[in-house]
Amino acid sequence: MLEHDTCHPSTFRELFFRYAAPLRHFVFFRSGDWAGAEDAVQESFLRLWKNCQAVPPEKAKSFLYTVAGHLFLDEARRQQVSFKFMQYAERVVPAGAPAADYDLEAKEVQDKLDAALLQLPEGQRVVFLMNRVEKLTYAEIAERLGLSVKAVEKRMHGALVELRNCFQGE
């Protein structure tokens, strides 16, 4: 159980270990910059700490995602970033699949997905990756992004349609 005080060291530590990793992924999904995403996590938690009296633990998540989202905007305003998701994502071979067959076909498909993700509008890419890679439900994504579930579903649908277009471009 969380002590009802974000300033309490053990509460703050627990919040950090609960949200630091998903927050880093979230910023990375937007920016494609893995090192920059760590800086955004550090800065977001520092700002939470400064406001710990005014932000109760149950609101910390919304605070962190809001701050991290804006930090990325600030960074983006200062320097253009390119999206290189696949450089960092590890490719996992499904259990039971014959390795050789997998390598040939799957690698080709994954390269296509890599290229397609690059083309995706940011809003759609973030929703798509939060759902498929971070394994968050639409309701959880909506809460973090400050959107309605319906809006998240629209972005998800749009992402798949866009990705399909890229896949068929060949």
Partner: peptide, 13 residues
């Protein structure tokens, strides 16, 4: 597309 995306994993944060 979905099967391929579902195999993606991020490095440890």
């Amino acid at each position: 597309i979905v099967e391929t995306a579902d195999r993606l994993q991020l490095p440890d944060a």
